[in-house]
Design a binder for these strands. Structure first.
Length: 610
RNA sequence: GCCGGUGUAGCUCAGUGGCAGAGCAGCUGAUUCGUAAUCAGCAGGUCGUGGGUUCGAGUCCCACCGCCGGCUCCA
């Protein structure tokens, strides 16, 4: 891959997954020869050995190390039960105690094929027939032999900390045309402490699950009547609106013009854009008066109608049309997952139409917005540049100019990136942005996608250049949050429901100690509300401790406790959700501090007891 | 869509063929309380939906729907 100036890409992490390495025979070995992948790979062999001992009729498929663990696929008519998993785990422990050495053997490929044919392992034979090598290696531990390039730990006794996690169906070689196998997932670590830490992480993730917190904190729910689409409850809608407000503040100040285009659109549009040929199976169709319409799965084609509303001059460009468009995509029922995979969502989209010479400046502008928006949540974005694929359309010179513009824009903003050569779309190169949440999980959010073809060519977009000639603009598709739904899901889990004060559905709750000070409590509550604070008054006939506990569980950033003393002095006793009693302050002082915290959109008070 | 699991009160869950239950939440009353659960009473159900087996089905069987864990998909 040729680079077009700028700094060379910095590789942030290896792009080859352990699974690809193992399944597609990429690289030299079946797992990265580092201690942890090797250990996990060996553990998968031990699991296969245990399974073969307990269930002699199963056929072996394949068993790679993966991120955080390993799996092995088996052909078996009945699925494994959770009792089976316990028995397998126990047998594995016995194999580990025996400390069997892993022994490598090399054989001619033909001999290996005969060997596995005799042992009745059709999948191994199929793999071998696809391998282009004169000799292959086998690994043996005790009575178990597997086709494998290694490496492995010296003996089974090296496995100290492992656990089987789950089983599920998985297609042979990942294709749904192939038979379904039974996959067992496990995890293995260098020490007991590491394993415990990992299991704790799983537990923590479960506690933070946005589906659970969404219900408990009254943010959003899902109902049978609309699979894959959220019902936003009042408190969740507060977060949605704050994110919208922030987004609009940022875009309004940077020359974006917000538009809104129809949701229900005639199929003619999708035929012109190419979606009808390439994306129809993901579109919801609606028939009316013998005409076929679709709920829009994307905003882009329609933004061209806004562009074409006027004849455009080179002086008009760039035009930055933003749109918070509600999109509908048919996703197969088995793929839906809370807010993370939905059928209806709100994309924070924008389409920038510019001249080729404006590309770099526009991309830098988008990158600035990415950093600004993500910085507000403490996310540190990583950037991936995808370049021209083999089947690309458009002028090669334009491709080169565009890739250079993307790369230079990243370099000028001092942003390291990883190159994904050949992974751009057919209509242009792109930058994808990935963040890691507090639990170390990666999420791809933003995408900055250049487009020479889909919008400009298919919709014949033009501007009149300085020389009086019509020219074709370049389009930039970009989304920063990605979708509000998914972003709120990620934020909910990232903050474990304890949103920064500016996002918190309820920012302060007033708790009068008893009915005797109810009137003062109400006056404090009303002052907060008049100051634009999202406040609640909890003057129910319950003990203070009870009401504090509830406010704490609702993860409300500030509790204002008022009794006789505060009532007399015009003060409030502040309790913060993170660290409890914060002392007594005058109401005015508290209001000023809170207003400053909110308007600066600081990431505050986010670590609390869960 | 495929494999498996699962669906009982607003929530969390018990209930293995014989009168639908508990805790929390809700409502009513008592209590007037200083930094994470006061006490008592009351009310709450088409057991996901539709069929079937049975004298009798929350429970057994079939189909469908939703959800969960994966697979596949995500021009």
């Amino acid at each position: 891959m040729k680079h077009h100036g700028g700094t060379p890409p910095v590789v942030l992490f290896s792009s080859m997954s352990e699974e690809d390495r193992h399944l597609r025979f990429e690289g030299e070995s079946d797992c990265e020869p580092a201690p942890l992948p090797t250990l996990r790979h060996s553990c998968s062999h031990i699991m296969a050995q245990a399974v073969k001992q307990l269930f002699p009729d199963v056929k072996l498929a394949i068993g790679p190390a993966i991120e955080d663990g390993f799996y092995y696929d088996f052909a078996k008519p009945e699925p494994f039960t959770s009792e089976d998993l316990l028995r397998i785990e126990q047998r594995m422990s016995e194999i580990i105690v025996k400390d069997l050495p892993f022994v490598r053997e090399e054989r001619p490929r033909e001999a290996a094929i005969r060997f596995f044919e005799e042992r009745g392992e059709p999948f191994k034979v199929e793999i071998l027939k696809g391998i282009d090598a004169a000799t292959v290696s086998l690994y043996r531990q005790g009575d178990f032999v597997d086709l494998c390039r290694g490496p492995h730990v010296p003996s089974t006794g090296h496995i100290r900390a492992f656990k089987l996690l789950s089983c599920s169906g998985a297609y042979w070689r990942g294709s749904e045309k192939n038979p379904m196998l039974q996959r067992i997932y496990g995890t293995a670590w260098l020490s007991r402490e590491d394993l415990d830490k990992y299991l704790w992480r799983l537990e923590e993730a479960k506690k933070r699950d946005h589906r659970k917190l969404g219900r408990e904190l009254d943010l959003f729910v899902f109902q049978d009547v609309s699979p894959g689409a959220a019902f936003w409850l009042p408190k969740g809608m507060v977060i949605f609106r704050e994110l919208e407000r922030f987004w609009r503040d940022v875009h309004d100040a940077r020359g974006y013009q917000e538009i809104s285009t129809p949701v229900l659109v005639h199929k003619r549009l999708w035929e012109q854009s190419g979606h009808w040929d390439h994306y129809r199976e993901n579109m919801f169709l609606v028939e009316a008066e013998e005409q076929i319409f679709s709920l829009k799965p994307m905003n882009c084609p329609e933004s061209t109608y806004v562009y074409r509303h006027h004849l455009r001059s080179y002086r008009d460009l760039p035009l930055r049309f933003s749109e918070l468009g509600r999109l509908y995509r048919f996703e197969r029922s088995g793929t839906l997952a809370g807010m993370f995979r939905v059928r209806q969502f709100t994309q924070d989209d924008a389409h920038i139409y510019c001249r080729p010479d404006q590309l770099q400046a526009e991309i830098m502008g988008v990158l600035e917005i990415v950093q600004l928006l993500y910085g507000a949540f403490g996310f540190e974005p990583r950037f991936f540049l995808s370049t021209k694929p083999e089947k690309a359309m458009g002028d090669p010179a334009l491709w080169q100019q565009a890739e250079a513009a993307l790369q230079d824009a990243l370099a000028k903003r001092d942003l390291p990136h990883e190159l994904r050569a050949g992974e751009g779309a057919f209509y242009g190169p792109k930058i994808d942005v990935v963040i890691s949440d507090v639990l170390g999980r990666d999420w791809q959010l933003a995408t900055i996608q250049l487009d020479f073809v889909m919008l400009p060519e298919r919709f014949a977009l033009e501007y009149i250049d300085a020389d009086g000639q019509p020219k074709r603009p370049v389009a930039i598709h970009r989304a920063i949050y990605g979708s509000f739904e998914r972003f709120v899901g990620i934020l909910t889990e990232h903050f474990a429901g304890a949103f920064p004060t500016w996002l918190a559905p309820v920012q302060a709750r007033v708790l009068p100690v008893s009915e005797k000070v109810a009137a003062y409590g109400r006056s404090v509550f009303e002052r907060l509300r008049e100051a634009g604070i999202r406040a609640e008054l909890d003057d129910r006939n319950e003990k203070l401790n009870y009401r504090i506990r509830e406010a704490q569980l609702q993860k409300i950033p500030y509790m204002l406790i008022v009794g006789a003393r505060e009532s007399q002095d015009g003060t409030v006793s502040v309790r913060r959700r993170t660290d409890g009693d914060a002392g007594v302050v005058a109401v005015e002082g508290f209001l000023a501090g809170l207003a400053a915290e909110i308007s600066s959109r600081s990431v505050t008070l986010t670590v609390g007891r869960s």
